[in-house]
Design a protein around this nucleic acid. Structure first.
Length: 456
RNA sequence: GGCGCCUUGGCGGAGUGGCUACGCAGCGGCCUGCAAAGCCGUUUACACCGGUUCGACUCCGGUAGGCGCCUCCA
């Protein structure tokens, strides 16, 4: 078990994870009012892979990624589309599960929905009201920011300079800093839940406090994550609510991923410069999308463009070709302990243990590939496959599960015969024919083989 | 204006006080009947100006430019 460190947004320090306790990770998932874009996939991938890596190191990890399916934007989008808000939310939740499922990196341990956590949400608000950290006003309930001393410590902002823009129209707040925990049902809103303050729905931040607690147990859990655009106000408010209600920190470490950018500007639904995850998967394939998402350090912004995805395709092809050339991908690495391959794997894991440095890790993987293509490196295939499993690319080893059909094999034999006769025109003709059937011919000193052409 | 971050070779993107990550693309070779795959080489990059240091791309200060949040947002 390695010492694993992660950068904490609040302190700015690298923090060691406690190996003796469950590593509870809560990452903020999407608000389901439309299909998710590739930027939304970044935290899903990062936190899923992190949890998997921790498990592989022997940690007890539990990952929860929520779905926010109650939100102003959902009402607005549903009204525009002429469907019920609950219908839209259900459709988009299903689409989110489908799109992220296609990434091929598994699912989080828990994926709570706000609509299924209403009870705990109401209880949490009641606690805050009882303790004087929240107050009811005209069917709404607001959190009293000034009742909580530490407000602003996560996003490093002086309290005096800020305000919560949300809900200003109603102006039922006592203080401009306060934010809504519960919103009474308004005209035109087609869904509502019962509460001690009348029918309504949770505000934006409270659902995460409640879901995190429900899924990960006693506070504080180890890591709270999400996009860096959530630091303020979303996470600042979550932190305040939970800490005010429980008298304990919500999370030990706050871990935020950088934004995906097009032309040096953040990809954002509201700006319209988005590229949907489903389209990226359709056009470039899941491995390339994952490879792209781990190509930069998670905290940094990552440039997005067709060129970047095409590069990812090329990277993944190189890895796939290498695995294809190895006979040892199925064997255990134990036989190669202490070797070049074993050392590379150790380095790879070290990189991940150091603030989850995936680009550093991948450079080690590519280094191994080159060395093993140059000379005999026992266990290189097994080592690489183990590396790739850790970053969600293990499926690259399964590229050739389909055997060529008899027709293709017959053509390959014909081509070999043509080559033996030095009838290269015919040989090339057959190669083109095989390409049409979906096979690429690779000649080598041991003879010709067929590999599936990568289509996407 | 406040808080934070960034500026690396054609592109993407790591990293370190002294040993030219890695990937992609281009170019030139090797291999091949030709390709593909693979290998080798490739014009020696760290915004600018000072400072610290035996030595800085890496530390400190400043300048310029860019980005994020401060309003919904992964």
């Amino acid at each position: 078990m390695r010492e694993v460190r992660v950068r904490d947004t609040m302190s700015g320090e690298l923090c060691l994870l406690d190996p003796d306790r469950e590593v509870g990770i809560y990452a903020c998932g999407p608000t389901v009012y439309s299909r998710i874009h590739i930027g939304n996939a970044r935290p899903f991938v990062i936190f899923s892979l992190l949890a998997g890596f921790l498990r592989s190191e022997g940690y007890q990890a539990r990952l929860a990624i929520n779905v926010t399916d109650i939100n102003d934007k959902i009402y607005t989008a549903a009204a525009e589309a002429g469907v019920g808000s609950e219908t839209l939310a259900a459709e988009m939740t299903a689409a989110y599960f489908e799109d992220t499922g296609r990434l091929g990196i598994g699912r989080p341990d828990a994926e709570p929905l706000a609509t299924e956590t209403i009870g705990p949400i109401v209880e949490l608000i009641e606690t805050l009201v009882e303790d004087g950290h929240a107050y009811e006003s005209g069917g709404d309930v607001y959190f009293s920011v000034r009742s909580f001393d530490g407000y602003g410590k996560l996003s490093h902002r002086p309290t005096e300079e800020m305000e919560q823009g949300e809900d200003d129209a109603g102006s039922l707040k006592r203080d401009r800093l306060d934010f809504a925990l519960w919103k009474g049902q308004k005209a035109g809103e087609d869904s509502a839940w019962d509460s001690p303050w009348g029918p309504g729905r949770p505000g934006w931040h409270i659902e995460c406090s409640a879901m995190a607690e429900a899924e990960l147990g006693e506070l504080p859990f180890a890591i709270h994550g999400g996009g860096s655009d959530l630091v303020f106000p979303h996470h600042e408010n979550e932190l305040a609510q939970s800490e005010a209600a429980r008298g304990r920190a919500l999370a030990k470490i706050w871990m935020h991923n950088g934004m995906i950018e097009t032309d040096a500007a953040k990809m954002s639904k509201s700006d319209g410069n988005i590229f949907q995850l489903s389209e990226a998967l359709d056009r470039f394939g899941p491995e390339a999308v994952v490879s792209y998402l781990i190509s930069g350090h998670y905290r940094q912004p990552l440039a997005f463009g067709e060129e970047q995805l095409n590069e990812a395709v090329a990277r993944v092809d190189r890895l796939r070709n290498f695995l294809r050339s190895r006979e040892d991908t199925g064997q255990s690495l134990d036989a190669a302990g202490g070797t070049v391959a074993g050392a590379a794997l150790e380095d790879f894991r070290d990189a991940l243990a150091d603030d989850f440095n995936t680009p550093m890790a991948m450079s080690i993987a590519f280094d191994l590939v080159r060395r093993a293509n140059q000379e005999d490196v026992p266990g290189a295939g097994a080592a690489l496959l183990e590396m790739l499993d850790l970053v969600g690319l293990g499926s690259l080893a399964m590229a050739d599960v389909e055997e060529p059909e008899p027709e293709a094999l017959e053509l390959l034999g014909d081509r070999e015969a043509a080559r033996a006769d030095r009838d290269f025109a015919r040989a090339d003709e057959i190669r083109d024919r095989l390409a049409e059937l979906g096979w690429e011919v690779r000649d080598s000193t041991e003879g010709a083989t067929l590999v599936p052409r990568q289509e996407r």
